[in-house]
Simulated assay, not measured.
Amino acid sequence: MNRMTEAGQPVYPLNYWLSPDLTKVIPPQAPSRLRQLVDAQGTLAAAWSSAISGGPVLALTGGFAPALSGNAAWVLVLGLIGAALTVVGVLSWKRVRGRLPKADRLLITRGPGSARGGTTMVAVLAGIIGAGFTTILPSAVERGTSVAVVGAYLLIVALLVACILAPSTVLGRARQSFRRRLHTAPGSAAQSNKTWSPGVTPTAMPGTGRSECQRG
């Protein structure tokens, strides 16, 4: 017999909520507290994935900037900032994926939520910006600065990929990635016997060896 929470809600094993049979009964777009938590975790991971991919873009900018300004210091400055941003992003991304967010915090994202949506947005923005660059390209060719113009455009596209496509891809795969980590992480089978209800949210991911819970 399943236990009951203080609010009178049934408490089921975590593998009940992850059961493929339950997924077949409940439509993918139907709201549930577990899905909200996983989506919130995906939103945080997506934000840090943007930092991870943005670091190399900064480093590339540092390598390109001296060609425009003649100041080699940009290589060191932007290179260090890009490396630091990538390291912080990787560490924070791993930390976010290892814990469910707090139950009393609901995160909302307004950007695209899938790789297809991110690709479409990047393509549209890149096309609009590219159309603007084509108007200055002829004069840049006459002045011998066409390489700088093309390089600047490519850096802008790379920035769009880092800030839009990368996080939208992570966000779109958040639920699939969450389920895969539960089934492949060491110790997840033992942790699947832990109980959870919409009113009690595990703050530690199954498989981490911790079973700390927080009231929602």
Results as ranks from 00 to 15, higher is better:
V149D: 04
S139K: 10
N193F: 08
A40M: 13
P10L: 15
P112I: 11
P101Y: 05
R179M: 05
L160Q: 06
T120K: 09
W196R: 05
W17K: 09
L137V: 08
V75I: 15
S139R: 13
D104H: 12
L34G: 01
R181G: 01
G207F: 05
P202R: 01
A7D: 07
R3E: 07
M205S: 00
M121H: 07
T134Y: 01
W48M: 13
L18C: 06
V141S: 07
Y12G: 02
I156A: 11
A7W: 01
L37Y: 05
A83K: 06
V200G: 00
L137M: 13
R215C: 02
G82R: 00
I128V: 15
G54L: 09
A152L: 12
R175M: 04
S188P: 00
V149G: 08
L37S: 01
L58T: 01
G89D: 01
A72Y: 09
I108E: 11
A140V: 12
V149Y: 08
G187Y: 14
T201M: 11
P202M: 05
V150M: 14
E6N: 07
D21R: 10
I26C: 15
L85A: 03
K102Y: 09
V38W: 06
R3K: 14
V161P: 02
L182C: 14
V122F: 09
L22V: 15
S211K: 00
Y12V: 13
A7L: 10
A40K: 02
Q214W: 11
A84S: 07
G118D: 01
A84R: 07
A152P: 01
R181F: 03
L68A: 15
T61I: 10
R143M: 12
R95A: 03
Y153W: 14
V149R: 05
L18T: 09
R95H: 08
L106T: 11
M4I: 10
A166G: 10
